[in-house]
């Protein structure tokens, strides 16, 4: 997306790369929905690569990838948010810095990095979302569309990745 369109879309708000990083958001797409996450929680965006699946984990935990010698877990946000799984993922990998270490998310497309001022955000909206409400920053307005602004670095850091039945390792249906 071009710089000019971005400016127009935000109704002429200032672009200042040095400051206001707290109000910068990475906007990405899942299906037709737009999501935003604070850029400060994002470590990097990677090209899609093969994800190695891990047993005994929840369905939306896609597996692990090698990021320069570091093993990073990947959460398929499509599956997590109830969309159909796309395989292989030909999309974008967003690596977040969570409190417990790096964790990645598979998204459909990274749209843009943009500034959202207080006027563009409605805080504490009374809507139901897929994530605990304390992680929902608000609903932002971007290019005449609504964006769910979510602290993804915190959401992903707090996910329980264990498969429900995995507290008992071993053959399914055994032991009864």
């Amino acid at each position: 997306m071009s710089e000019t369109r971005k400016k127009a879309g935000r109704g002429g708000a200032r672009v200042d790369w040095g400051r206001e990083s707290e109000s910068r958001y990475l906007i990405f797409r899942l299906g037709e929905e737009l999501y935003g996450t604070p850029i400060l929680g994002v470590r990097e965006v990677l090209e899609p690569q093969a994800v190695k699946p891990i047993p005994n984990a929840v369905k939306y935990f896609a597996g692990v990838i090698n990021v320069r010698g570091e093993i990073v877990g990947m959460i398929d946000l499509r599956v997590r948010f109830g969309h159909e799984k796309v395989s292989p993922p030909t999309l974008a990998f967003v690596i977040f810095d969570s409190a417990v270490g790096p964790i990645g998310a598979i998204v459909d497309k990274v749209e843009v990095v943009t500034d959202l001022g207080e006027d563009d955000i409605e805080r504490h909206p009374k809507v139901e979302t897929e994530v605990p409400s304390d992680f929902l920053i608000g609903i932002g307005k971007f290019n005449d569309r609504l964006v769910s602004l979510i602290d993804f670095n915190k959401v992903l850091g707090a996910e329980d990745l264990r498969h429900l039945r995995s507290s008992r390792l071993g053959p399914v249906g055994d032991g009864s």
């Binding site: 891990i54 005994n56 692990v64 090698n66 329980d160 990745l161 264990r162």
Partner: peptide
Amino acid sequence: LTGNMAELPGFVGGTILGDGEPGM
């Protein structure tokens, strides 16, 4: 294994295999 991956049962860590693929 960082964060929530550390709780996955059956695994004690990860490594990078000879061809660069992560191995559990």
